[in-house]
Nucleic acid binder design. Structure first.
Length: 279
DNA sequence: ATGTCGCCTTAAAGGCGA
């Protein structure tokens, strides 16, 4: 890359098989540093590696038949030091989390990246809703143990939660799924461990959505939710230089119902290689 | 509008999940 800025992206692709051409087009056009994917809807063995390798990337995936599935696409030269498939210590039938600690050439500090597909929750008060809250609680506890006040961590994914009122179109029913007080409190507790919402660093008030229902021409009418997020840990908050939502892939033929959410950041000075004249 | 997708199934339309 011609400059030092990193571009990290999270994208719920709603079937990697169907959306592979979109992902490859996105890599070719935007040249992101790292992409976190959700809803692969295929088993790990069906995730292709060649088209990514050709473009200079490796892909680490955690899939299962039919539902869920997450992945991380990263530069070939990055070394995965530690890999977690699922929240450590939390029994879960669903492939919803892939966490990788990277060793990056020319950087002294390791970097954690997490691709997370939070449970949808279906309806407030349902069994799936209770599972959603338990899942978030387990993720929060594990992230806290990673020490986000000190370590460099990106938590990226489809949280299935619109954190604040302006993150949901006014037509979305109050206290329904994705916007309920219980979900927002669980999200706030996770964030409070030491994270900052990257998009809100750059756009504190703007109405930005990342998902629009396939039905009712919701995208054309901009009736959506902001449920896909990138959280940065405390040491990274001041490193964010830009962030936003890429609406363009949502206009492509046969799109995912989600748009990519991205952040650009510069490594903190203590992550960069020591200069030659330093001791 | 129960409005659309994607994936699954004793294959063809229907169920499930989102």
């Amino acid at each position: 890359m011609s400059c030092d800025a990193n571009r990290f992206v999270t994208w719920n692709v709603n079937s990697l098989k169907v959306r592979l051409p979109h992902v490859l087009r996105y890599l070719d056009e935007k040249r992101p540093t790292l992409v976190a994917l959700q809803e692969l809807k295929c088993v790990t063995e069906q995730v292709p590696t060649e088209p990514f390798a050709e473009r200079g990337y490796q892909i680490l995936a955690f899939g299962q038949p039919t539902y869920n599935g997450v992945a991380l696409i990263a530069p070939n030269e990055w070394q995965a030091q530690e890999v977690h498939r699922g929240i450590p210590g939390f029994a879960d039938d669903a492939a919803r989390l892939l966490a990788v600690e990277w060793r990056i050439p020319a950087q002294t500090r390791p970097l954690w990246t997490v691709s997370a597909y939070f449970p949808n929750g279906q309806a407030v008060g349902s069994e799936k809703f209770a599972y959603k809250l338990r899942w978030i609680e387990a993720l929060t506890a594990w992230l806290a143990a990673l020490d986000p006040q000190r370590q460099a961590i990106f938590v990226m994914g489809d949280a299935n939660i619109a954190p604040e009122a302006r993150d949901a179109h006014p037509s979305w029913p109050e206290e329904s799924i994705h916007v309920s007080s219980a979900e927002r409190a669980a999200w706030a507790e996770l964030v409070a461990q030491g994270f900052t919402d990257a998009v809100r660093i750059c756009h504190p008030e703007e109405v930005l959505y990342s998902w629009w229902d396939y039905r009712q021409g919701a995208f054309r009418r901009n009736i959506g939710l902001r449920i896909d997020h990138i959280l940065v840990s405390a040491p990274l908050a001041r490193c964010v230089i830009a962030a936003g939502v890429d609406r363009e892939p949502r206009t492509w033929q046969r799109p995912s119902d989600h748009a990519p959410v991205w952040v650009e950041w510069l490594p903190p000075t203590n992550m960069a290689t020591q200069s030659s004249n330093s001791v």
